[in-house]
Design a protein around this nucleic acid. Structure first.
Length: 502
RNA sequence: GAGGGUGUAGCUCAGUUUGGUAGAGCAACGGCCUUUUAAGCCGUGGGUCCAGGGUUCGAUCCCCUGCACCCUCACCA
């Protein structure tokens, strides 16, 4: 048996005392009729109203035979006033056994205290769930209009591991996640309004593809085959375009077996959309419209601040060719240069280039180093080297490039899109090149996907496709510095020591 | 993967600068208090000082190793 802390022992003792009183500390239902925020909003000093609320006890100020408390429900907090002569001896005895963290139901008349706080004068009190583990007590005070927080529950490790506590105690965390859902719903609504079809494609895949990344590997026992967790939805969604859907999209988790930092979680949410008979210009408009609509769901206007930078989402966003913006930030002409010339330029610019980097990779490194951090306002960067983009269609006029764009906000990539490559012969050649890269040691190179080639051979219409990182968009729209702040349960190493240590 | 930082009571943190097993506020417990709000006043209890090893008469403190988290960098979305 684990060692109980005194605090838990006391609570367990109270639990049995409550049972001895004939009160079930874990009853089944409570028919609440009101929420805290509505009671406060609808208060009318000329009208006596009853309210019936349920919520968690968050603060208690006892005064002998009376007490002021705050309870919190999904809408917010409200003060309640409990008095022995109002609830009776028995319920007041029960009240004295309650702790902060207990979930209770109350009924009573709404009134305003001497200090002008709208409160409920409790006439009936019920315990709905007994708390056995002390909650961090966070105290607040309004001082000269500034909200002061005392004893904030701030340990990031504890907050991420015990997100349930974080959500109870830190209201701004709850707001971030409410916004996350609003953002996703807004994007889904936008796509549905275009009559695109929301679909689901396999997460367990025999071949992974659609991005450059290292996968997670797993095993199916009955079939005795290895499978990969998807790194992108792309190749399956385009098969559906082949199958005759004109617009498909999927919100889903992708998995990449790579490092973890404040921009990367091993599993993350991606939305990909494919639209037939369109090109990447169309997709730029889709992105800026869809995202700016989402911004409006969480902000009063199309501007908001991310980590001190004001960002204006009003369409149209800036569009710049990669070669032009490279020239703008480096003063160098990049287009049409040989590998050795590019290496010399990189050296001059003080950009370190890894061994074995080809032309595309060198350009990408220079771009990441010199340009990307400067792209604070929403910007589309157009036309990438063909080597970096094995699934994108070759550019209609610029040789060596593909019709691809990435959207950048606050110095970070948030989406990636192309005019999709639908020429099966070219696609096969690109896969073969990737396989070569793989042999050359690039463990993120694509695999050959024969079935995907077969699908293209049946004919895929001209198609525009786009993937957008939902977590990153949510970070920007909620001014969150870390991806862990927008994922309920970010990946952590398991706690060691087993149950007894918890 | 590399470098830096942090780890002390349920929570937020002092402290051991010069090694002698530790303190505050909040929370808890007991008492007083029927309009308070970081409620107040009086009193009480509570800690394998992250883990393991070393040095030492003695380590929470010094040394070594490890673990977790945070930050920066590398890879990536």
């Amino acid at each position: 048996m684990e060692e109980l802390t005194d605090l838990r022992k006391i609570r367990l003792e109270k639990l049995s005392q409550i049972r001895e009183m004939g009160v079930n500390p874990f009853p089944f239902v409570f028919d609440r009729t009101d929420f805290a925020a509505d009671v406060i909003k609808n208060f009318d000093p000329d009208e006596k109203k009853q309210a019936k609320l349920a919520g968690r006890l968050m603060a208690v100020r006892k005064h002998g035979k009376a007490a002021f408390c705050h309870i919190m429900d999904a809408s917010g907090k409200i003060q309640i006033y409990i008095r022995k002569d109002q609830v009776g001896d028995e319920q007041f005895e029960l009240f004295k056994l309650l702790d902060i963290g207990d979930i209770i139901g109350i009924e009573g008349e709404v009134f305003k205290t001497r200090t002008e706080e709208i409160s409920v004068f409790v006439s009936d009190l019920q315990l709905l769930s007994k708390n056995l583990r002390p909650l961090p007590i966070v105290k607040e005070k309004i001082e000269e209009g500034e909200k002061m927080v005392y004893d904030e529950f701030a340990d990031k490790e504890l907050r991420y591991r015990q997100r349930y506590v974080d959500l109870i105690v830190n209201p701004e965390v709850r707001d971030v996640f409410l916004k996350r859902t609003k953002i996703i719903n807004s994007m889904r609504r936008y796509l549905e309004d275009q009559n695109y079809l929301e679909v689901e494609t396999p997460i367990l895949q025999p071949l992974y593809g659609g991005a450059n990344a290292r996968p997670f590997k797993t095993h199916h026992n009955a079939l005795d085959i290895d499978l990969y967790l998807r790194i992108a939805d792309e190749l399956y969604l385009k098969r559906l375009i082949v199958g005759g859907f004109d617009g498909v999209f999927e919100f889903g988790k992708d998995f990449r077996n790579e490092g973890i930092d404040r921009f990367h979680n091993p599993e993350f949410t991606m939305m990909e959309v494919y639209v037939a008979y369109k090109d990447y210009y169309f997709m730029m408009e889709l992105v800026e419209n869809m995202v700016s609509q989402a911004v409006q769901r969480v902000s009063k206007n199309l501007k908001l601040t991310y980590q001190g930078n004001e960002i204006d989402f009003a369409p149209p966003w800036q569009r710049k060719k990669m070669s032009d913006i490279l020239k703008e930030y480096t003063g160098e002409e990049i287009i049409g240069k040989s590998k050795s010339e590019l290496l010399a330029i990189a050296k001059k610019l003080n950009v370190p280039i890894g061994d074995g980097a080809d032309v595309g990779k060198i350009i990408d490194e220079i771009f990441s180093e010199k340009v990307e951090p400067n792209l604070i306002q929403p910007t589309f960067i157009l036309d990438y080297p063909v080597e970096l983009s094995p699934l994108a269609k070759k550019h209609r006029s610029d040789q060596g490039f593909v019709e691809r764009f990435e959207g950048f906000i606050a110095g970070k990539e948030i989406c990636n899109a192309f005019s999709e490559l639908n020429d099966p012969i070219d696609q096969k050649a690109r896969f073969e090149q990737q396989v070569e890269f793989g042999r050359g040691g690039d463990d993120e190179a694509h695999m050959m996907d024969e079935d995907y080639i077969r699908a293209l051979e049946y004919g895929m219409p001209p198609t525009a496709g786009m993937g957008i990182g939902i977590d990153r968009i949510v970070m920007i729209l909620t001014d969150s510095p870390s991806i862990r702040d927008v994922i309920f349960f970010p990946h952590m190493r398991p706690e060691k020591g087993g149950e007894d240590s918890l």
